[in-house]
Design a binder for these strands. Structure first.
Lengths: 69, 69
DNA sequence: CACTAATGACAAATATACTAGACTTTTAGT
DNA sequence: ACTAAAAGTCTAGTATATTTGTCATTAGTG
């Protein structure tokens, strides 16, 4: 339940050569929101997840499906 | 932007032989929330979407990826 | 060293997802 | 037509996602 970081998202972002700030601006949220999503222990909206996927060229299943539940 | 119903979810639910109330109880939300998700114009949390997918045996991409955006 | 960019963490304020209740309308069965 | 279950709508309240601001840390660079 604790410390459930979204490492796949972080990897996809860095692979795309984007900073947290870049991604935040691309999907029109604050940098804090990106930090929170990557840090886990957080429950973002589906629309935000979809926007992030589109910017990073990934799918929802790739970035937001938890295998350890 | 208007009237963007999630017909795929509704189809998957009925295919599973579940009412809105059944699905709501299965994922521990109110029936209103299920109504809202199916009716579109709504932005549910990713956790709720994942829970719904698990109950209905579907993936996030199948139920929550909008093709018309 | 000083400077900047990037990340991570904390807290208060705001926007909105979700709840709870009551009600109307549709759908399906007899 | 009658009935009941299921679906849809509205409103007010509560929980929480998201914002805004600030500060600390790390890594690179002149």
């Amino acid at each position: 339940m604790t410390n459930n970081k979204n490492l796949k998202l972080k990897a996809a972002r860095t692979l795309a050569g984007m900073t947290q700030n870049d991604l935040a601006q691309s999907v029109n949220v604050s940098r804090q929101t990106i930090v929170a999503v990557e840090s886990g222990n957080y429950n973002p909206s589906i629309n935000l997840c979809v926007d992030i996927c589109k910017v990073l060229g990934c799918t929802l299943d790739e970035l937001f499906w938890q295998t350890d539940m």
